[in-house]
Amino acid sequence: MKAPTRLSPWVVPCVLALATLWSGPTPAHHSFAHFDMNRTIAVTGTVSKWVWANPHSWVYLEVMRADGTTQSWAFECSSPNMMIRWGWRYADIKIGDKLTIDTHPARDGSPQGSVFAVYLADGRVLADPMGRRVSGDDLAKGPPPVPSKPTGEPYR
């Protein structure tokens, strides 16, 4: 897979610790060096687990690959407190839902990613400040305009 070229302009790559990413303050819970924030892929699958917890939420998908095999993916989100202010609700996602996640994948090739946006079956899009360079003002005001459909290269 090659790097996507259709990232919306509000995606700012990051390569160092979350703490060093944000122009303003940050939860700074840990580094995001694990994820390639310059790449975005779109992973579609069925929700197998949905963890709404601090310091980070997680979505787990069972993904059917093009070769017919199934792969388990784990996607790291922000703190629920931040996600709520960006329009998320716990009830938005349920086990068994089919959804697509724009994600910055792990550098080591493991099936993990940091969440950029989640595309729900009902058409709603949930943006996540996870690992982005945003300020306290951005966190309070909510997300910038979100894409209406996945921007990452489809993961097969």
Binding site: H30, P55, H56, W58, A74, E76, A106, Q112
Partner: peptide, 19 residues
């Protein structure tokens, strides 16, 4: 409430392990 350490920082190695 911070209740989940699945991102685990190993103080011995100084490395963070995910999930």
């Amino acid at each position: 409430v911070c209740s989940d350490n699945r991102d685990y920082y190993d103080a011995e190695t100084g490395k963070l392990h995910y999930d």
